[in-house]
Write a protein that binds this DNA or RNA. Structure first.
Lengths: 260, 260
DNA sequence: TAGTATTTGTACGTATGTATA
DNA sequence: TTATACATACGTACAAATACT
């Protein structure tokens, strides 16, 4: 029995853990230590059953745990089974959002963070934007020029505005900064989506277009500090349009985010 | 059959999901919408089997999913079963750390974030520190005065230094800011722990003590901007002691964090 | 297009472990 | 100590999805 492998010698009088958790932890450790890459295959269930000397349900619970963490994906059929997956930003943010049900946060507090992260994002992408990025950025500006007429048009408009920032996140060399910006964007989207106040003023849109233009300009001249400053103004401007600081703020992510 | 309850009418031609995921999602949604609080009980397994019209293994996989997410905790015995749990910071950070195995981040990039978050943390706690907080802060300074002699002493010293910042996090009214600071601290701890360079210079410690003193002073006078500035200096100072920017940096969280 | 083999997903029955009274 | 109520673990059987012929 390879059952003994489960016992971690480092914790002598080990706390009582569930078997499936121990197995999940061992597999996770193996993924990290063996340097497995996305789409690398894990052994199939019968082999894992053999390796760990436990039942199928235990193995399946362990794989479920890893699946929820976003570390593996399962598929059926021939050549199926568990494969290592790159933990996606969407999943990470989904898991993160759970935290804020029990530790409520409102949109004013989100903007307190956005004032920090977005300017740094703007500064950090300088020198990392390729032609394809610039092309994509310009494209969002083109699309924003059309003055929406109906609700669907405004929704699309909003989406394009957010896209500008997502392109920057793509180019950001610091993955933690990128993730924080993604989370903040998601929080803002969520708020706008639930408040249903989709028809923001055209003046707001015009201001945004102008800021985006000035940002591209700073990016092109390779001026990180100017990019930072313009983005700072941009965030403050958006804040003044979107926030009603005196109104009571409802918690962000009061409803759960989809995990896939 | 209450099986129909599983079908979300909003997504007409719903994508094919696993039953257990659908059940997990429904339970999660229920927790949020019903406003359940930590330690509130969920129905027991037989009742859930009945409610969702599916088998025990499906229900157990769903509960496992929620457990991994940190939303519920299971217990055996009479009056046992699944109870709602407040998603802990430790679990959130553990799940978050998985992301960075596939999107590597080094300590220089961590400090890029720390320069943003810690000063904001210092400013944000002004007016939120109670006597107990001040007492705890002063206590860490007392403990830091002893010049460590052995490795264990230095480890303790480090721990106390970090504790100062954790007390601030406790008092921070913005949960996202608090979480980010926690994550950054964890990353720094991890790095110091693995590098094994536990014996940092005494000059570094003395500088830290001085900064901490000046921070407490700013907190007492209710001067948020001064607190921000002092903390900014503090972070830059620590950076200059800890970082060797020209050396190749190994990725942070190359080994997985414990989830409990 | 249909058929078949492979592998996970779901179901059910039973036994074991554990915490409470 | 015993009984009870609950989760945890195991084993087998079958359904469903996928890839390949």
């Amino acid at each position: 029995m390879q059952n003994d492998d489960l016992v971690d010698p480092s914790q002598k009088a080990a706390i009582k853990r569930k078997r499936s958790d121990a197995v999940a932890d061992r597999i996770r450790r193996h993924i990290f230590q063996a340097g497995l890459k996305p789409s690398d295959r894990l052994p199939q269930e019968p082999q894992l059953i053999d390796m760990f000397g436990c039942s199928r349900s235990t193995i399946r619970e362990a794989l479920k745990s890893l699946e929820v963490q976003g570390l593996v994906q399962n598929s059926t059929g021939p050549a199926g089974g568990a494969r290592v997956a790159s933990v996606s930003p969407a999943r990470t943010i989904g898991l993160l959002s759970n935290y804020f049900y029990f530790h409520p946060i409102n949109i004013v507090q989100i903007y307190q963070i956005r004032r920090l992260t977005e300017p740094e994002l703007a500064a950090s992408v300088v020198g990392h934007l390729r032609d394809s990025h610039f092309a994509a950025l310009e494209r969002t500006i083109e699309e924003q020029h059309e003055h929406p007429t109906d609700a669907a048009g405004w929704a699309h408009h909003r989406k394009v505005e957010v896209e500008f920032h997502e392109i920057l996140i793509e180019a950001c060399p610091n993955p933690l900064l990128g993730l924080m910006c993604r989370f903040v964007n998601e929080a803002i989207n969520w708020t706008i989506g639930t408040v249903g106040d989709n028809e923001l003023s055209w003046a707001f849109s015009c201001a945004n277009i102008d800021y985006h233009r000035r940002l591209i300009d700073a990016f092109r001249s390779g001026d990180a500090e100017r990019a930072r400053e313009v983005m700072h103004e941009h965030v403050l401007s958006a804040e003044s349009f979107l926030l009603r600081p005196n109104e009571p703020q409802q918690p962000v992510f009061a409803e759960p985010l989809q995990l896939d």
